[in-house]
Design a protein around this nucleic acid. Structure first.
Lengths: 154, 154
DNA sequence: AGTCAATAGTTGAATTACACAACCTTTTGT
DNA sequence: ACAAAAGGTTGTGTAATTCAACTATTGACT
């Protein structure tokens, strides 16, 4: 890391590219998800739900207001993908759990979104992975608790 | 096509990380820009303006509604960073141009945003650059018109 | 030249994605 | 037992953005 000015300029440069990529990706994802009547925020929420999870926890791990979790949960419940279950000991808490349909959906959706030629087709497997590793490094360095909140994938 | 399923899963995986990085970056940028009374969309617009540019073109290159360009231009003009100039031949058109202040701002802002420890400090210069190159590759492939729509002929 | 359709930009209404504050229920601490 | 805190919901507000309607200008065809 030579001089600050060059670093700042490189970061700005990088971010420009990032800002260009993002709408492309979000657009693609949104398009595909639209067929299932869900937004990419819904999907992001669904992604975070796995075992029984108090709504509060979802709010925390998505870093959104609890009231918005209510809305997301409503929508996902409407779609039959999750359920609100009473917490076994604390009657204030509602646990979000995947329904059978939800589990099936969650398992198949990545392929439905990313099957065939897509945004990342131009990258080789190695490049895709490298890209992910670099991004993950950024996330990790930012570090606080929200990284740990992400469930492990495969 | 080696195995689509693995590729899809890798893409999904990558996008998860991307979705995690983005709020961090946007948050950082927004924070810094707030001091100048502008949103990161304003900045993104400013970034696109250089020579005299019809508002229509800005709408097109930012892929947003023309009416929204009016608003963005209003804000940037309010800040004294750009100006609406009459088009030399077509009186319907208003050309957006940087003011002197705008030029200065545009030149110094990257450093103001990315100076000091930031989101990308964890990456080395080489890594930052590599990250950019990979992202640029994604952008380029998308820009090639309908690459995404073509079947994998190779 | 005269009319008519298309274009650039603006304005105002509608939409969407959220956050915030107020509220009810249940739990916890003393 | 009672005050305070926590989980969730509802209602309200705001910011970002699109859509539709309007004005001024231009280009196209006769």
């Amino acid at each position: 890391m030579a001089n600050d000015s060059a670093q700042a300029s490189a970061a700005a440069d990088l971010v420009e590219t990032l800002y260009t990529v993002m709408p492309i990706v979000v657009g693609h994802v949104s398009d595909r998800l639209e067929d299932f009547g869900m937004t990419h925020t819904d999907y992001w929420a669904l992604r975070s739900v796995d075992g029984p999870m108090p709504m509060k926890d979802l709010a925390q791990c998505m870093d959104i207001d609890p009231s918005y979790v209510t809305l997301l949960a409503d929508r996902l419940e409407e779609l039959g993908l999750i359920e609100r279950q009473p917490h076994p000991t604390d009657r204030r808490v509602k646990n979000l759990v995947l329904t059978a349909k939800g589990k099936r959906f969650k398992k198949t959706i990545p392929e439905k979104i990313w099957d065939g030629p897509n945004t990342f087709s131009a990258l080789s497997d190695a490049e895709r992975n490298h890209l992910k590793v670099l991004l993950a490094k950024v996330v990790a360095s930012h570090g606080d608790g929200d990284v740990a909140a992400l469930p492990e994938s495969a």
